[in-house]
Design a protein around this nucleic acid. Structure first.
Lengths: 232, 232
DNA sequence: TCGACTTTGTGCATCACTTCACAAAGGCAC
DNA sequence: GTGCCTTTGTGAAGTGATGCACAAAGTCGA
């Protein structure tokens, strides 16, 4: 789902699979920090994050040697290093386009603010919704998209519009210079090289669960059922 | 994130990576079907789904030989086959636990119903919320969890509670015989073998975007900044 | 200071997924 | 029919992630 920019050869080459797990480690570490744990072994942290300890160590080794042999990792120091690597030591302005049920949930989601993401704008095309106060912000009209992005230094845009509006919003957002997009609309967005799109589709996860559930129940798809439609 | 059940050697062994893409193909096919397209080549379908055509063909070959050489795939037939493989030809009763902003958004999300998922129950621990009408359902108290699961044949549970409540809900749900859980709470759930948990964490996706965004801007993490905390 | 013990960091083998490239299969025109 | 053209399905090579197993490096008690 990520199109890597070819001209920039990832300087220290952290594998995508590792990057995807760093937030997981970060959350586990924050949990430990809250309980005032000073150091943690790769084994314990791996359990807390739900991964294999060898994998954890290899992942962390991509960031540098931040552990102490015989002891483990300093929790605070590791939190800082992972945060820095992920770019969470700086403040990111995020705009959410589409303030339906999902957009509202996202605007109110505490997990953003606590990790350096600041919701700097809420936009919707529906005049009914424009003007509403949500999570301390006033919903603005989609027409303001470009100016909101420019004026508030938005660098990441969340698209939570209906599927039909998503590509148009995406195009405008990219034209405004944004190169990181989180897409909740159930469409494949077409973007130029250099733009990162991550997609979250709630129903896909359920479909994957249904697949496994079916296997448990039936030991596979129902074979007796026959195709009732017409074929060519 | 999925713990595969070891005793059941996936009968026709469809790779996890393939299963994760089938919903994507299904959506692309539904789009084509709406536009009354009768057949589609692997190349065209691949573009619509945003993947490589060789990968698409290999994925579909795991389901069987449903294409016609020189022509392509019959859209309706392929929709049926993928749906059957994913278990979407049957009706799945889903319960959503935790009716906050996210739970509400999920209850109202159209993508579920249209794919054979029926929201059969909404539960929350907050007496303020119990009794609310959402998406045609009345929110029930979490105490009813076990009876709702049993009486309405719920086989998939969505956890959208605060992090602190998630594990307890999870345990009760599993005790009621459910083995498929979709978790939105930002915690690693501990479950026995044979239970599938899929996790969606909205802030993780943003963190991954921030990582790539930072690389674009700075060419890597800010190196001048030094660690200000105390170590050991 | 030393030796026992713990835990990291990593080379290596393995496994899974991706991509290429092409033979086999079918449709279609004549 | 026959031969050309298109597109599938798949062996095989390539790429990347995983997990084992252990040497290296450090702590800590005596």
């Amino acid at each position: 789902m990520i199109r890597r920019i070819p001209q920039q050869p990832r300087d220290r080459g952290i594998p995508d699979a590792t990057v995807a797990r760093l937030p997981l480690y970060l959350r586990a570490l924050n949990g430990l920090a809250e309980r005032a744990v000073a150091t943690v072994s790769s084994e314990d942290l791996a359990v807390a994050a739900g991964v294999n300890s060898a994998k954890l160590r290899k992942d962390l080794s991509h960031l540098g040697s931040y552990g102490t042999r015989g002891v483990g990792y300093d929790v605070q120091y590791l939190i800082y290093q992972i945060s820095r690597e992920l770019g969470l030591t700086q403040d990111w302005a995020v705009a959410i386009v589409g303030v339906g049920n999902l957009g509202r949930a996202l605007a109110n989601y505490g997990g953003f603010v606590s990790r350096g993401f600041r919701v700097a704008g809420l936009l919707d095309a529906d005049p009914e919704v424009v003007g509403d106060h949500i999570a301390g912000l006033v919903v603005e009209h989609s027409d303001e998209l470009e100016s909101v992005i420019a004026k508030r230094g938005v660098s990441i845009v969340v698209i939570a519009t209906p599927a039909t509006a998503a590509q148009a919003v995406c195009d405008r957002v990219i034209a405004s210079g944004v190169t990181s997009i989180l897409n909740f609309a159930p469409v494949v967005l077409t973007v130029p090289a250099g733009v990162d799109v991550r997609k979250v589709d709630l129903s896909i996860e359920l479909q994957i669960l249904a697949f496994h559930e079916q296997r448990k129940v039936n030991g596979g798809p129902v074979m007796g059922e026959e195709w009732a439609g017409e074929v060519s």
